[in-house]
Simulated scan of single mutants.
Amino acid sequence: MAHRPFHHGNLRAVLLDRAEAVLRERGLDALSLRELAREAGVSHGAPRSHFADRRALLDALAERGFARLADELREAAAREPADPARTLRAACSAYIAFAVREPALLDLMFAAKSDTPPQPVREAAERLFATLAGIMGTGVAAGAYDAADVGRLTLLLSATVQGAAALRTSGRITEEQGESLVDDAVAVFLAGLPSRR
């Protein structure tokens, strides 16, 4: 039997990269710390120095997914900074593109794993929502809605793009229908909020 080393240059990153690939190619059920260690060429106990168990690995994947999605939305919105409609549309399109590219990761990110996810996962999710709130803030500057409505609109935007992404990744709607949904959602957001009853 070949000796497998315990140490690896950047084992945590290697394991997370490989776990994302497994998640993408074979799904959540195929993820195993032992199998990831084998593929990384390290001893089966080596991953435990970074992930106490499979749940910790899944939490780290979710945290990484939230951070990457927030970055992608921020970058997309930054390409259209002067026009609130284009900014919102770019962010929504980036969200759906992420969902189409990484459907299993997005499902993992939003799966209810427990009532109190670990703090790093909560903080990463909060950063995503803060990014969305910042993007929604472009509508305040344009006079489309009040700053007091940003929190409410951010939740509505999140639900809208998450729903459109789910429809798109499940094959219920086409890419063109998804783009049309994004256009309609942006138009509704910029038309203003209905008053609360």
Rank of each mutant, 00 (worst) to 15 (best):
D183N: 10
A142E: 10
F66A: 03
D146A: 13
T174I: 02
A94L: 03
F98Q: 05
A13H: 14
A52V: 10
I173T: 09
R79Y: 02
A56P: 07
L88H: 08
G41R: 07
N10Y: 05
L58A: 09
H44R: 14
L156D: 05
A70G: 08
I173P: 02
S43P: 01
Y95F: 15
G151Y: 03
S180G: 04
S43N: 07
A85K: 04
D29N: 14
R79Q: 14
L193G: 07
M109L: 13
D183W: 05
R18M: 12
L108G: 08
R12Q: 15
L31G: 10
L23H: 11
V121N: 09
S49D: 11
D29V: 04
G192N: 08
E126N: 12
F189C: 01
R196T: 11
A166Q: 12
G45M: 11
S93P: 00
R74Y: 05
R74F: 06
V182W: 06
P117Q: 07
S180N: 09
H8W: 01
P81D: 09
E39W: 06
V188M: 07
V22E: 14
G65W: 03
L106K: 09
C92I: 00
R86T: 01
A191D: 13
E35P: 00
E102V: 00
G27T: 10
R196E: 13
H44E: 15
K113V: 09
D149Y: 06
E35Q: 13
A76K: 05
T138P: 00
F189L: 09
R54P: 07
G139R: 04
A104I: 03
L193K: 13
Y95K: 00
E126S: 14
H8I: 02
P5N: 11
D71R: 15
P118N: 10
V188R: 04
A164V: 08
L88V: 01
H3E: 12
F189Y: 11
A82R: 12
A166L: 07
S93K: 04
E72Y: 06
A165I: 00
F51C: 03
A91L: 02
T160G: 03
R172A: 15
R172Y: 05
A111C: 05
E102R: 15
A112K: 11
A19H: 10
A91M: 01
A191L: 03
S114R: 15
T87D: 03
V42W: 09
R68E: 15
G41C: 08
V22R: 09
R24H: 14
A85I: 00
S114Y: 07
L11F: 08
A82W: 04
D184F: 03
S93L: 13
A90L: 04
D149G: 01
A70T: 02
